[in-house]
Amino acid sequence: MGVKFASKDKAIKAKSKSGQKGEKSFGWKLLIPVLAFFGFFNIVPTLWMLGLSFNDYKLISSNAPHYVGLSNYQSFLADQQVAHAVNRTFVFLAFAIIFQTTLGILIGVLFWRNDKLRGRRLALTLLFTPMVVTPVASALFWKLILDPNFGVGNYFLQIFGIAKIDVLTSQSLAFPTLLVVDTWMWTPFMALMTLAALGSVPKAELEAASIDRLPLFTVIKTVVWPHAKFILMLGILLRSIDAFKTMDLSLIMTDGGPGDKTELIALSLYRYAFKSFNLGYSSAISVFLLFIAISLTSIYLYVLNLKSRKEA
């Protein structure tokens, strides 16, 4: 009897193994369209760009692309202008994340705490408007507001007897102005992520915390953060990558000026690729940007995993 059972058992196991294999291959087949799409539009261009970065390839030159090894990278590392742009971009990124995350969390908490407030939905819709407007349109719109001659901003300053300021050509104010506009545009995104993050905290745990009279800091640390951290950190990650790529704002509002005060790395890249048509060199810059984006993602994922590992 025992033998019989054992052989039956084996048969079942074998069957389930082959069944699992079949299921697995079916899963892969289902993935084919998306993998093909991803490969064609993502991996191929990336590899192409990587290849180009080792070539001297200028669209305005009649020379065919030829292999130059690490030469593009060497000139990129020696390029003072690019180095400044990279530094500036990191400063822009840091301030943008600090301002937008802080303000976004404050606004998110405000809406979360007052979920029965009248007009909440309307206020939320209005708040999210800047986020849905195309960045180029937003940039143009702010450029017009801040225009020294016919801008609404300066008109109001004049009413209060304050002299006109041309912030976009001011050496000291142009960069902060870009930051303010970026913050205006993207704080709603962080507010939305905060709302989503707070929404993921179970109501019973918050109620238990208020019944247990836990102090606010303990509530945030032991109840809110463990649930909210993933969505909030994802928001910060997305915003960081996006801020690093900011180009449209400075192109439209200041064109990198005055001087190179608002020249961000993505704008430099745009100039090398589509003004100077130096595709080899701009590909090297792109590879650098890709490296930064991947590093940021890895850092965030590492931080989150580390925390959850510690908790486990």
Binding site: P202, P215, T222, V223, E311
Partner: peptide, 24 residues
């Protein structure tokens, strides 16, 4: 109050869970 679903403060030890409300 004890809720229908066990509410515990995650990421802490059992002792810490019992202590938390007493600390305040």
């Amino acid at each position: 109050m004890v809720f229908q679903y066990p509410v515990i403060y995650k990421g802490t030890s059992v002792r810490r869970n019992l202590e938390l409300p007493l600390l305040s």
